[in-house]
Design a protein around this nucleic acid. Structure first.
Lengths: 205, 205
DNA sequence: CACCTAAGATAGTAATTAATTACTATCTTT
DNA sequence: AAAGATAGTAATTAATTACTATCTTAGGTG
C-alpha cells in the first residue's frame, strides 16, 4: 500500500470500484456523481477520467467486480455441501453474507436493472442473474432426481422463488432502512422456501 | 373529456400522474425529468408547475395514486374469496393484474425505495408496504388457526415470502425486459408458495 | 357581448452534471 | 541524475436540470 497519493492505475481503479460499492450503501445509485465518488476517494473529480473513459465505464467495472465476487462466493459455498438441498442452503447463506458485507450491492443491481436502455452494465447484470438461475435449476433438477425434492417440483418457479426470497428480504430491509437485519431474517426465509420445494415427509420439511 | 387544451386543474393533475406512471414503464424513474413528463403530455414544462409546487410533489402524488389503486384492488379481491388461502390467491392475482396493467409501477416503487433520505414519497411507499404486510399477516394467522396452513408456519417469513414471490417475478421480467410474461409465470409461482405454507396433506399442497 | 380568471406559452434563471483542458507532481528507467 | 511516463490538480466547458417571471389565450359568467 503506497502512501495514498499517486497510486498505480490498477489500485486506483480498484479503489474507485470499492468506493462506488460503498456509496451505493448509503445513497441512491442514480444520484451518485463523479464528483461524489471523487470526494469519497479524496481525489479530484477529473482524476477519475485518467482511469475510466466515461462514467458508464465506472458502472461497468463495478458490476463486473460484483459479479466476480458473488459467483466466487457461490462457488466456494457450493463445494463444501453434500446434497443439492444443502448446496442450495449454502448458496443462500453465502449470498446473504455477501449482502451484509456489501449492503449497497442490492441497490446497485436494482439500480442497473432500472435502466431501460441496454447499457453494458445492465447487460452484465442480466448475464449474472441468468448464470445464477442456470446454476440453481441444475441443482434443483438434481435434487428432484435424487428424491430430495418434490417429484412434481416446478424447476423454473423454484429458481425464481429462490431469488425472490432473497429479494423479499432485501426489500424488507430497505423498508426498514436497516440492511443488517437481513441476516436474522434469512434462516426463517430459507426454511419456508425449503418447505415449498422439499419432498413431502422429508426430514427438512 | 374536454378538447385537450386548457383542462381544469383536477384533470390535469390526474393526467400528469398517469403520464408519470406510463413513463415509468419505459424508462428509469430516476431519469424522468419534468421536461420529459411535459413532452409526453404535450404541454410545456413550465405548465406543470401551475399544478404542482415541485417535482417531489409530483412523485408524492404518483405514489398516492398507486397506493390507493393497489389497496382498492386488494380489498375488492379479498372480499370475493371464502377461505384465507383463497383470499391470498385472489390478492396475489389482483396484484399481478395491476402490474400487467401498469408495468411501470414496480419500477416506480423500487425507484422510490432507492432514495436513502426519507422523502415523502418514500415514506408513503413504506407505509403502503407495511399496511400490505399487516393484512397478509392477519390472513396468514387466520389460515393457520383454521388448520388450512401449517401449524408451525412462520407468519412473518410467510408475509415476506409473499411479497418476495411477486418481487421475484418482477425481477425475472425486468431481466427479460418484458413485463407481460409475469402473468404467465404467476400461477406457478403462487402454487409453489402455497406448497410452502399449506398444511401437509391439505388439498392445495 | 365584454370581462375576468384559470391554464398554458414563452423565455428566462441558477445550480449541477460529465467531460476536457493545460499544467504540475511523482515515479521509473537507464 | 536526466528524461520520459504516469497520476493528479485546478479550472473550465457545454448541456441539462428544476424552477420562475411575464405574457397570452381560452372559456365560463353576468
Amino acid at each position: 500500500m503506497s502512501k495514498n497519493r499517486h497510486l498505480p492505475a490498477d489500485e486506483r481503479k480498484e479503489l474507485t470500484v470499492r468506493a462506488v460499492v460503498d456509496l451505493c450503501g448509503r445513497e441512491d445509485p442514480a444520484r451518485i456523481t463523479t464528483a461524489s465518488i471523487a470526494k469519497y476517494m479524496k481525489v479530484t473529480q477529473g482524476a477519475l477520467f485518467r482511469h475510466f473513459p466515461s462514467k458508464e465505464a465506472i458502472w461497468t467495472a463495478v458490476v463486473e467486480w460484483v459479479a466476480e465476487r458473488v459467483m466466487q462466493r457461490l462457488d466456494r459455498a457450493a463445494q463444501q455441501a453434500a446434497t443439492p438441498l444443502a448446496t442450495l442452503e449454502a448458496m443462500f447463506m453465502a449470498h446473504i453474507d455477501f449482502i451484509t458485507e456489501h449492503p449497497g450491492v442490492p441497490r446497485m443491481l436494482m439500480g442497473q436493472l432500472q435502466h431501460a436502455r441496454p447499457t453494458p452494465a445492465r447487460h452484465m447484470v442480466q448475464a449474472l442473474l441468468t448464470r445464477y438461475r442456470q446454476r440453481l435449476e441444475a441443482l434443483l433438477e438434481e435434487g428432484r432426481a435424487r428424491g430430495e425434492l418434490r417429484a412434481d417440483l416446478d424447476i423454473a418457479a423454484a429458481a425464481t422463488q429462490f431469488i425472490g426470497t432473497i429479494q423479499g428480504l432485501v426489500m424488507q430491509s430497505l423498508i426498514a432502512g436497516d440492511m443488517t437485519q437481513i441476516r436474522d431474517l434469512a434462516p426463517g426465509a430459507f426454511r419456508l422456501y425449503c418447505q415449498g420445494i422439499a419432498a413431502p415427509g422429508s426430514a427438512s420439511a
